[in-house]
Every structure is written in structure tokens, then in C-alpha cells.
Design a protein around this nucleic acid. Structure first.
Length: 270
DNA sequence: ACACGATCCTGACTGC
DNA sequence: TGCAGTCAGGATCGTG
């Protein structure tokens, strides 16, 4: 489900409900995630107060008095703040009970997500190797150009690599390359500085638009408040294989790149 | 170092 | 209706 915009929409939706709340209980119904949830999570968390909810790439960091709870939504995860006695759905794997009768509930059918306690996640290999945030000034065309020299990898895979830049998954990689007129199959090392400058600006614009529209709702992604994200209506490439290009009217084509569905316009993208 | 495929897991959907 | 096959927004690991 979530790329950077969906994670950021989640963060914005729940951060104010979490700030200064005290954790009064924890229930792990199924701790078998990408890595096992800490077995003693309740002992570790109960009594601590929540200071902030921060995002780094597609990771969320819940800052508590004595450390941080690292959260990742994987492909199918979601995180909501609910009244404590809200009925359970299947795959509601972790509940963190808060004062004021609320619960922070982690839901993840495919269990590719993470819920892990630690004291310094920024030093952990999971986060330490991440590339820049797309909204940071060091993410720009010159950076992409420099980093891509000599690389034969298709530019789409290069853009989705979270050591290049964090947060750009399959949907937004497709959209950014479409809007930039760059063929996703083109070798990353053979794209000009000028085109990378356009691509970097486009990535930022696409992600910002998606956040402003509440993210992209496919299948079950909804806001923390249950609303849908409307960026799906703005998708020009992703999910539109076989339909006509909004720019030139030709038929959009689909190929698989690094195992991921890739949609592009053979006429507009080079 | 680099690029790719397989893999973790469940659910939705397709076609027979 | 049922069953097999395919695919899905991520990230890591092993391979050549």
C-alpha cells in the first residue's frame, strides 16, 4: 500500500492524536512481521509518554521518553488511532493502548511491515543506508546525475532504490518518469543532467501533489480517519496500460522491470 | 560494485 | 462453486 505520500498522510493524520499521550498497555496478537516484534514490547513501552511521530523515508519513528518505536507499513500495512473498544478486524496485529481510552492499532495482512523497539534507529543499518529525503535540498538533478554515472540499470529501478532517494515506490516512479518524458527502461547512466533536473523536480511535485490529495487509495489504503486518498484520480500512467496517453493519445504499454509492472508511453517517453 | 530474480505473506481477481 | 494461477503499493538476500 504505502509509498512516501501514504506514510506521510498517515503521520499527519495521527501525530497530533499521539503527542503527549501516555502508553497504558500493549497487546501483540501476531508478532510475526518482517522481523519479529519484541517479545517484551509491553514491558518496554508501558508508562512511557509519546513525544513525537517522525517519518524517514517510508519508516515511521514513534519517539518515546526512552527510545523509539520503529514502524514500517510494508506493502499492506496501516496505522490508525481509534477509540479503545473499536471492534477488531482480521490482521489487527498490534494494539498500543493510550490514556484517554484510545488505541494506536497496527494492521497488516501481508505482514511485510515492522514494529520494533530500539534506542537509536538512525544508527541501525535499516536507516543508516537510506538515501536523501526527496524534499531535502540535496536531492536534485546534479545529485541524480552524479550518482547514476556508469550505471546500466534501468532508470526506474535506480529511482526506486532507497539508497538513491527514499520514498519513491512503483506508483510514483511510473508517474514521475511519465511526466518527465523519460523511458523507464533507459540506462540510468545515459541520461543527461538537464533531464535529471527535470526528473528531480517532477518527483518532488508528484509526491507533494499526492500528499495534498491524501495519497493514492488502491485496495484498502485509507486515511487514518477512514477517508480515501484521491491521488488515484491523478494517475496518468500507473494502472493505465492499454489505455490512451493523456498527452498524445497513443496506447500506453506495459513491461516488467526488476519484477515490477511498468507503464509508459512509447511516443512521449524516450 | 552492480543488476536481477527469488522470497517473505495474504487476499483479490481471472480463467477453466 | 471450486480450484489453480497470477498479481499486488516493499525490502532483503543470494546469485552470477
Amino acid at each position: 500500500m504505502p509509498e512516501l505520500p501514504e506514510v506521510e498522510v498517515t503521520r499527519m493524520g495521527i501525530a497530533s492524536h499521539l503527542k503527549d499521550r501516555r502508553i497504558v498497555g500493549v497487546l501483540v496478537r501476531d508478532g510475526r512481521l518482517r522481523r519479529p516484534v519484541n517479545e517484551d514490547l509491553a514491558e518496554l513501552l508501558v508508562g512511557q509518554r509519546i513525544q513525537a511521530l517522525e517519518r524517514r523515508g517510508k519508516y515511521l519513528l514513534l519517539h518515546l521518553d526512552q527510545g523509539q518505536l520503529l514502524l514500517h507499513l510494508g506493502m499492506s500495512g496501516s496505522l490508525r488511532v481509534l477509540p479503545r473498544h473499536t471492534p477488531l478486524r482480521t490482521h489487527d496485529h498490534v494494539d498500543i493502548y493510550l490514556d484517554h481510552d484510545q488505541v494506536l492499532r497496527f494492521h497488516d495482512p501481508r505482514r511485510f511491515g515492522l514494529v520494533l523497539w530500539g534506542s537509536n534507529w538512525f544508527a541501525d543499518p535499516l536507516l543508516a543506508k537510506l538515501g536523501p529525503e526527496p524534499f531535502d535540498s540535496c536531492f536534485n538533478g546534479a545529485y541524480l546525475f552524479r550518482r547514476s554515472r556508469g550505471r546500466q540499470q534501468p532508470v526506474k529501478g535506480f529511482l526506486m532504490d532507497n539508497q538513491t532517494v527514499v520514498g519513491v515506490g512503483n506508483i510514483y516512479a511510473n508517474e514521475s518518469l511519465f511526466r518527465s518524458g523519460i523511458d523507464p527502461r533507459r540506462a540510468a547512466g545515459r541520461i543527461s543532467l538537464a533531464r535529471y533536473e527535470l526528473l528531480a523536480r517532477t518527483v518532488v511535485t508528484v509526491l507533494q501533489e499526492a500528499i495534498a490529495q491524501g495519497g493514492t487509495t488502491l485496495r484498502d489504503f485509507t486515511h487514518p480517519d477512514g477517508e480515501s486518498g484521491y491521488f488515484r484520480l491523478s494517475l496518468l500512467a500507473y494502472g493505465r496500460a492499454g489505455q490512451s496517453c493523456q498527452y498524445c493519445g497513443n496506447c500506453l504499454r506495459e513491461v516488467r522491470l526488476a519484477g515490477r509492472s511498468t507503464v509508459y508511453c512509447p511516443h512521449c517517453q524516450h
